Simulated assay, not measured.
Amino acid sequence: GKTLMPGLVDMHGHLDTCYYASAGLLPQQQASRYAALSFGVTTNYDPYTSELPTYTASEMTLAGDMTGPRNIAVGSVIYGRKRKYDPVFIPIDSYEDAKVIMDRKLSLGGTVIKSYRQIQRQQRQMLNKAGREKGIMVDVEGESHFFNGITAILDGNMNLQHNVPVETLYDDFIQLMAASDVAHTPTLIVLFGELMGENYLFTSSRLWNDPRVETYVQTTTSSYSPLAVPVGAPPYVRGMTGLQAAEEIWDIGFRAAARSMKELNDAGALVNAGSHGQVYGLAMHWELQLLAEGGMSNLDVLKAGTINGAKTLGLEEQIGSLRVGKLADIIVLDENPLTDIRNTESVSMTMVNGRLYDSYSMNEVGNYDRPRMPFYWEENDVPNHIQWKPAWGHH
């Protein structure tokens, strides 16, 4: 009575904060990674992290010393403008500068960079050329700028992050994208140009009732709220600041963008699902639901959340589908998502690299009996000022 499917490949999952650069190492038991696994995300691609902490966490996960999804990240982004509040501005005045960037990423063990807000198109082109020479993939930020998105496709980046800020795409864009080798991760949950899809889902679900959210999601990425919510607010706080909008507003917003994604998919373009880390773990399922609202079939939505991302990362021979010889990233669902896409949320067991976890307790089961260690806030001697759970009972 269960359904097996490949582990989800989140192609825009901010599990780490971008601003750990001066904070040292990440915690060895990181709640956001447990949240992602508990909801069946077995590979997480993070297109904006920090440098050494993130690469350290990736290696510790590979070595089995940290629990979490396969962690593929860009480290610090390659940012093209001064006065950013984190130290990511790297001037590219010549092609030699672009090559130095790639050499540094290689020395850290990186496989991909993110090109972000370069002032001139030629700077993005130099990054692409240097990346091809050095074997580093170049992802690109959409920046909510239509013409930057067009030139990013023309210049051959590996993937365009975020939708272009035109929800209804015309046939010229569809043909261009489909004819290119550039994948697209639209993040309808954090939509450019119209009200974000997460607003629709925050007002149409009670996410705090999910025990996995309660246990592993202390905070959401809340600064995208239309109201001035603290950046790291608990899910119920973010849920109290939703937007009420007429159905026609949602229809010209995320649903129009989702219909465009269906057209892109039907034309042969590679469309990926990415959660933006809005609600760790759960947001990946929200993104799948938002894609389905545009008419994409449930099977194609599942592909957007699995094999399409694997292809974008060049890992389709290792992850993204169930086949003999691939890595053992498998999730067990209590309900069938082919009948209702919302059934992807019914993850009850997650296997990553052959290690099987109960999705609710996150105890390792199967070949081993390894109970999850308590998080620091679950210890009895934690000061009351960081106990957020008592507030759950007041809804």
Rank of each mutant, 00 (worst) to 15 (best):
A73V: 09
V138C: 10
G64K: 08
A267T: 14
A179F: 10
M158V: 11
E293H: 12
S32E: 07
P27D: 15
T219Q: 04
A63K: 10
E133Y: 09
T344N: 01
R255G: 02
L191E: 03
F173S: 03
L243Y: 03
Q289T: 00
Q318D: 13
I136A: 05
P87Y: 11
D300I: 11
V100Q: 15
I174F: 08
S205K: 11
L15K: 00
D381Y: 14
I319G: 01
D16Q: 11
T42S: 09
K326Y: 11
P27I: 08
N265Q: 14
E317K: 14
D381I: 11
F192G: 03
I174W: 04
K389G: 04
S107A: 14
Y48S: 07
S94E: 07
I72G: 00
Y357N: 00
L299M: 08
Y360R: 02
D369N: 11
H184Q: 07
G68D: 01
R33G: 03
G232M: 10
E214T: 06
G274V: 05
E378L: 13
L227I: 07
P27F: 09
K99R: 15
G325C: 13
S107K: 15
K99L: 12
G24C: 13
K84A: 15
D86F: 14
V365P: 03
H162M: 07
A269R: 10
R206Q: 14
V365D: 00
K311V: 08
S32Y: 01
W392M: 14
A36T: 09
T56Y: 12
D65Q: 14
